[in-house]
Amino acid sequence: MTDTPASPDPTRTGPVRVLLLEDDTPLRERFARILDDWSGGELVAACATLDEALALLRQQPVDLLMTDLNLPDGHGIEAIQLLGKLYPDADAMVISVLADDETVLAAIEAGAVGYLLKDADSFELVESIQELRAGGSPISSSIARILVRRMTGPPPSQDGPSLTPRETEILRGIAKGFTYAELAEWLHISRQTVPVHIKNIYRKLAANNRSEAVYEASRRGLIRL
């Protein structure tokens, strides 16, 4: 592992193919409208149920899955897992009303690399997607804090890659409330590198995690730190 995050891998150019999965109609329609208006993206479909989304995923490739977590017929994590299985290069983004929720973390451990707030405006939405596709992930201090707390606890059976010292430093810094700019200054890295480190942290979390267990725990409401 090097401290330099892997650069994004835009194997294909052209508009980002987006699959939207959101059961709340006003929200779904709103996001669909924003995505339709965005020239850089292409809305594959806007699904209201998990089954619908899973079927679509099997039929055609997507670059980005935007999904709500609590769905009438299941959990958004299932869609994220299927995405990861079918299209390893695709990104998953969770739509959540609060960015510091445990379920968001569960989704990250299942393979999501970003999240979007439900009240995000069009500008935010587009910026989030662009950032994600450029290789960077957002992280809130709350999620960082949960991750740091988990690191100080007894280590779970880990067989995947572990965090580099730099990644750990970044995580701790964000958990303490430092801004990206402050961290970048202290660690002598550019401000833009911080989200890339974050995305790597997310990938390692997902790799270290047995998704089934997380999904199960999350479904039964057991995961609350």
Partner: peptide, 9 residues
């Protein structure tokens, strides 16, 4: 909060 997000939309 979910309802508020819907109201916004």
């Amino acid at each position: 909060s979910g309802h508020l997000a819907s109201i916004i939309a």
